[in-house]
Design a protein around this nucleic acid. Structure first.
Lengths: 129, 129
DNA sequence: CGGGATCCGCATCGATACTG
DNA sequence: CAGTATCGATGCGGATCCCG
C-alpha cells in the first residue's frame, strides 16, 4: 500500500473508510456474531454452538476484535465457573442495522446467484468439449 | 430464515444464505469492484488503477467470479488491441444497493471505531504495566 | 490491452493440549 | 465455562514472465 491517489475520480485508496470497514465485515464470522448478539446477549459456548463450523480459536479471536472495535461488550461475571456474557453496543447495533439489507438480499437472491453459476459453468463446459 | 434450522432459535448453519453471500461480500475486492462498475462500465486496467493495491491476478480472479455469480457482465470488443468492458447486471445492481448502507456506515463511523480501538489498546497497556 | 501460468512465502486457520 | 498456547498444513495472494 502506497500513497493516496486523490486525483483519480472513481478510486478506492487503501485508506478509504469503505475498505477498512469491509475488511472487518469481510471477516465472515464477525457479522454473524454481531447479528446473533443483537437479538440477545450470548455466552461463549452458546455462540460456538450457534455458529456451525467456527473453531474456539476463531471465536475468541473475533470476539476480541469486535470488542476492540467498540462493537461488542464483554461482561465477566464472577461465578464458579466463570460466566461471560457478550452483548452488542449501540455502535454495533447501528452496524448490524446497516448489514440487514445485505442479509435480506442474500435470502432473496441466493438462488439466482446459484443459477447464474450453473449457467456459467455449463457454458464453460461446452467450450471445453 | 426458513425451516432448515427452525429448531435452534438463533443459529447460522453452513448452508445459511447469509453465510454464503457473506463469503462473497467478504472478498474485500468484490464489493469495491461492484460499486465502481455500478457508476459506469469500466475496463480492466481502469479498475486496476482505481483500486489501489490490487494485483492483476486478484482482479481477473474476482472479475471472473463476479461474472460467474451473474453480478457483472463482461463484454469483449474485437479491436486491436482487445478492448474489454465490465458492466454491472441488474442483479448486481440490487446487491450494490444493499451494500450502500454499509458504505455509508463506514464513512460515518470509521472514526468512532478507530477511537474505540485506541481506548482498548490503552487499557490493555495499563494492565501490562 | 487484457489477461493466463507458475512459483512460492507467509499469514490463516484448524486441531490439540492445557489453565484459571 | 471460557478461554490461552503451540504447532503444522494449506492456500491465498503477490511477483514475475509470457502470450493473443
Amino acid at each position: 500500500m502506497k500513497a493516496a491517489n486523490s486525483k483519480i475520480p472513481n478510486a478506492y485508496s487503501a485508506e478509504c473508510p469503505t475498505r477498512q470497514i469491509l475488511d472487518r465485515v469481510g471477516d465472515k464470522w464477525a457479522v454473524l456474531i454481531l447479528l446473533l448478539v443483537r437479538d440477545e446477549p450470548m455466552r461463549f459456548n452458546a455462540l460456538r454452538r450457534a455458529i456451525e463450523g467456527i473453531s474456539q480459536k476463531m471465536l475468541s479471536q473475533v470476539l476480541k476484535s469486535l470488542e476492540r472495535d467498540g462493537l461488542m461488550r464483554r461482561r465477566a461475571i464472577a461465578t464458579v465457573p466463570v460466566t461471560v456474557e457478550y452483548s452488542i453496543t449501540p455502535l454495533g447495533a447501528t452496524l448490524a442495522d446497516a448489514v440487514d439489507p445485505l442479509r435480506e438480499w442474500a435470502e432473496n437472491n441466493l438462488k439466482e446467484v446459484l443459477n447464474a453459476q450453473r449457467r456459467y459453468d455449463a457454458a464453460r463446459k461446452d467450450i471445453a468439449a
